[in-house]
């Protein structure tokens, strides 16, 4: 009787797949050196990936099923600068700005772990400024397109879904960047106040502050950056 029970309890460490399962399912935590906050951010980002993924798939499906021609992105997003016609120039600059902000973010994480309070805060603020610049340029781009007659429900050049998908996807991404900027500033404030040096409890959560918060913020920020790369590829280059 109860062979399942006996087997379960006295099983010798087996090789292969069973060992992997045992290691992974081990005592207390599945990921040994990952804190709660970091695990939560990773899983949130996984979920958010599905949101952006679905948005992009929805856009592609709409683009393929619409009956009218799709406007030429490189022409729509061109600018005249000093008499020269430059396709996609604004988007290129925006992309550059956002990628640079990932650089400053990475440096902020690094300084955080060295407990360089001022440098961390400065780099976080720099990241926030670059992020805000990105959002600003996006606002400029929206204004320009709206001025040219692009609306969510139609545009002068072809399929109405062009404007719909453009405003929806860049808007949703821009919201992510904006939220990121707000959190960057909040964390910069905590850093400069020394919350993470003294482990001051958070106002809402009551948890002691740690420099790891900077890294978790960084995960989010790099994710938002990465998503932009996909939006850039699928919306502007296709």
């Amino acid at each position: 009787m109860d062979t399942a029970f006996t087997e379960h309890r006295t099983r010798e460490p087996a090789g292969g797949l069973a060992t992997i399962v045992d290691d992974f399912s081990a005592d207390q935590r599945a990921f040994r050196n990952v804190s709660w906050g970091k695990a939560m951010m990773w899983i949130f980002l996984l979920s958010d990936t599905f949101i952006f993924g679905t948005f992009l798939i929805g856009y592609m499906a709409a683009r393929m099923s619409t009956t009218e021609p799709w406007p030429n992105a490189s022409e729509v997003f061109a600018l005249e600068i000093a008499g020269r016609h430059l396709p996609l120039i604004l988007i290129a600059i925006m992309t550059f700005v956002l990628i640079s902000s990932s650089g400053t973010m990475a440096m902020a994480v690094n300084c955080g772990y060295r407990r360089q309070r001022r440098a961390t805060a400065a780099l976080l603020v720099a990241t926030a400024i670059l992020g805000a610049t990105f959002v600003g340029m996006q606002a400029f781009e929206w204004t320009k397109l709206i001025g040219e007659g692009v609306r969510p429900w139609g545009n002068p050049w072809g399929a109405a879904q062009f404007g719909s998908a453009f405003f929806m996807i860049t808007g949703f991404h821009g919201t992510h960047v904006t939220i990121g900027v707000i959190f960057l500033l909040a964390i910069a404030r905590k850093v400069i106040r020394g919350d993470f040096d003294h482990g001051r409890p958070g106002f809402f959560t009551g948890r002691r502050g740690r420099y790891e918060a900077v890294e978790i913020m960084g995960l989010y920020w790099h994710f938002v950056d990465l998503v932009w790369v996909f939006i850039f590829a699928f919306f502007y280059l296709w």
């Binding site: 045992d22 399912s25 081990a26 005592d27 207390q28 935590r29 599945a30 990921f31 990952v34 804190s35 709660w36 695990a39």
Partner: peptide, 9 residues
């Protein structure tokens, strides 16, 4: 995943 007590695999 990360919050179990001792021995709770």
């Amino acid at each position: 995943l990360q919050g179990r007590t001792r021995g709770m695999t």
